[in-house]
Simulated scan of single mutants.
Amino acid sequence: MTQTLLWTRSLRYGPAGAALAIALLGAVAALQFAMPDTMPVILPFSESFYARTLAATDNDLRIDLANKTVNAAPGRAENWLLLASAYQQKDAALSGRVLDALRRSYAAGPLSPDAHDWRLAYVFSNWSLMPDDLRRAAMAEAEAYATRYAGFVYIKELAPTLPDSEGRMALGLVALTHDRAMDSARRVAQHRAMREITLQ
């Protein structure tokens, strides 16, 4: 009799309890996602750790939170860059940890749109100290990024501000090459348009 009563109650309240638990978990996740730096970290979203890392002032805490960010989403290049930035601030130099995090960011997303700006600025600012593999990766990224108008504008504006003269020349060459290519494409388009007008 008691087994039947328990079975009946579990059938009646079990799905409702599961639905309530799922709804509660969803609400917590939504709040944590909406307010990553104020909500306690209940679910390990990388965004929560990312926002907390940016807000942290202590270097050791920044590194700890950046590691948690990477562990929560290792496939996101910007998370590896956050770790590289945290290491850079702690080490105050281009260390092996920074280089490793940069390499991993390229492995995770060589053309990640959320990683272009900081990564290109950092690599080209330290161009003379960068190993060849990171130079090649940065050049490939800059070449690809420059094919988009926003990327071209960013690279063209960044190049003259770089402190490393070799990096300034390398990125300036990318900007110059794509500037000429865009100019050539504009001329071809104008020529075609004029030709179509004269044929009409």
Rank of each mutant, 00 (worst) to 15 (best):
T2W: 00
S10D: 05
K156W: 04
S95N: 11
L129T: 00
F45K: 00
L120Q: 08
Y13Q: 10
L134D: 01
R119F: 08
F45H: 12
A73Y: 04
D117M: 06
M194K: 14
A140D: 15
R187H: 01
A137S: 14
Y122G: 09
A23W: 06
A185R: 12
M35Y: 15
L99N: 11
M169Y: 05
P113W: 02
E143V: 01
P44A: 10
Q200N: 06
L6C: 10
Y149A: 10
S165P: 09
A175P: 11
F45I: 04
W118N: 01
G167T: 11
E47T: 13
A144F: 07
A72F: 04
L11P: 00
D117L: 11
F49T: 03
D60Y: 03
A138Y: 09
S48R: 02
A23R: 06
Y154F: 15
Y149H: 10
G167F: 00
L158K: 09
Y154A: 14
P163R: 07
S184H: 11
R187Y: 05
D164S: 12
A19E: 09
L81M: 14
A181S: 14
S105F: 00
L176N: 15
Y106N: 11
G17M: 08
M182T: 03
A108E: 07
L173G: 14
S125L: 02
Y87E: 06
D117R: 09
I197A: 14
L99G: 05
S184I: 03
L65R: 10
I197S: 08
L61R: 13
A66M: 08
G17V: 06
T57V: 09
Y50W: 15
A23G: 15
A107F: 05
P74G: 10
S10C: 01
V28G: 00
A92M: 14
N126V: 04
P15K: 06
A27H: 08
T8N: 07
A93I: 04
L20P: 03
T8A: 10
P44S: 13
P163G: 12
A137V: 00
D133Q: 08
L162D: 11
Q32T: 09
L81I: 08
D133R: 04
D164W: 06
A77D: 01
R103H: 06
L171V: 14
Y87V: 10
A193G: 02
M1I: 03
T2L: 12
D64E: 15
A93V: 09
T57P: 03
A23V: 11
R135P: 13
R104N: 13
T147W: 03
R168P: 09
